[in-house]
Amino acid sequence: MKPSTRSRYYGVLAEFESPAALVAAARATHAAGYRKYDAYSPFPIEELADAMHDHKNPIPKIVFFAGLTGACVGFGMQVYANLIHYPMNIAGRPLYAWPMFIPITFECTVAFAAFTGVLAMLALNGLPRPHHPLFGVPRFSQASQSRFFLCIESSDPKFELEAVHKFLEGLKPMEIHDVEDE
């Protein structure tokens, strides 16, 4: 019957005024040993990834291999069409006219790479996700406008409501909000 803090709260959210304050807070949070936390800002902040030690990014690799697949599919399709499926002799010109296959191969490379990359970005980000516990905090609407937020999540093994509150207050935020889980 007694709900644990872990299930009642998604986390604790602190609001900051500037990107620099948020970066400093993220650094401190990481240093304090928290791992399940995230920062929110209306625009990408260059220093933040570094502060959060968020270096893993598989997107470039995914895009590269998707492009490679696109190239093979594009070129293979044309070779198959012209040599195997329907060889057509046009004034004795070679069937395997590879220079003529380059434009479509290129377009297929770009198309595969671009679409796979965007879908991978959305999938890794867990989007689309129309609702999220954070949207329950009214102030959070500022995260897309002019304020900067840091949320320590309850899934962090170190998460203790009191301690997290105390820790975040030490970072001198403008406000602290509890984020309830739904």
Binding site: V63, N125, P130, S144
Partner: peptide
């Protein structure tokens, strides 16, 4: 799509934007 400006999201977002 429920974008919430998460730094981890921005990180991947920026890389795909640049790649595009």
């Amino acid at each position: 799509l429920g974008w919430r400006g998460s730094a981890r999201h921005w990180h991947r977002y920026e890389s795909i934007y640049l790649l595009l």
